[in-house]
Amino acid sequence: MIKVKNLHKTFENLEVLRGIDEHIEKGEVVVVIGPSGSGKSTFLRCLNLLEDVTEGEIYVDDEMINSPKVNVNRIRQKMGMVFQQFNLFPHLTIMENITLAPVLLKKMTKEDAIKRGRELLARVNLAEKEDAYPAQLSGGQKQRVAIARALAMDPEIMLFDEPTSALDPEMVGEVLDVMKDLAKSGMTMVIVTHEMGFAREVATRVLFIDQGIVMEKGTPAEVFGNPQNERTKNFLSKVL
């Protein structure tokens, strides 16, 4: 579903990604771990073209998406993105946050979008909040709305960029529960996170990225249970 070939990303003089090759199959839940500054968030943002790719190729459904000829907006409609800082639209109600894109992009009529919005809010346990504004919600609730908002576009892939890093500890669980539920439903997911317990439980595959390359990958049992690379061992010894 996603193929990444020799992905490089350079900011000014800093080479953040130094050649990443990866295949992500439909239905996989890939968790990306690594120390801060390792390039894992940049990798995720490149998948959604929020960062220009310096070199290399990214294919989604066999279409090279970092070609200048491709309509970026159409590609992004296939990929939902959840941000560390939620990035809800503060001037819109929760329901408007969710229905804005599907209605504006003519995927649905307003009535259908609201109906779908209610289903999604029920799914993230926030049915009673549709008329609230983002400022009235807790961090965990905001992030669940952000997930519902991304799902409203019926994406094929969901990307999560440290979705629980900005949350108070007691709210992490409620967001992870929604993500687990989503993984169970068969959604293809790429998740950058520091939640190792979650990675172990939910991931079909774990990538350890450091210094801009994939240092180690495998099933959670392999990466957490029997890491081969010295850097992986070192990193896991600090976070586990």
Binding site: L50, N73, R76, Q77, Q85, N87, P90, H91, A101, A150
Partner: peptide, 27 residues
Amino acid sequence: IDKGQMEAGRSLGLNAFQTMSHIVIPQ
């Protein structure tokens, strides 16, 4: 306006103009 607002709009598939007019400018 925080640049995350633009990114959130674009990540949903809105183009730059739609994101400006519906998300950034109203704020």
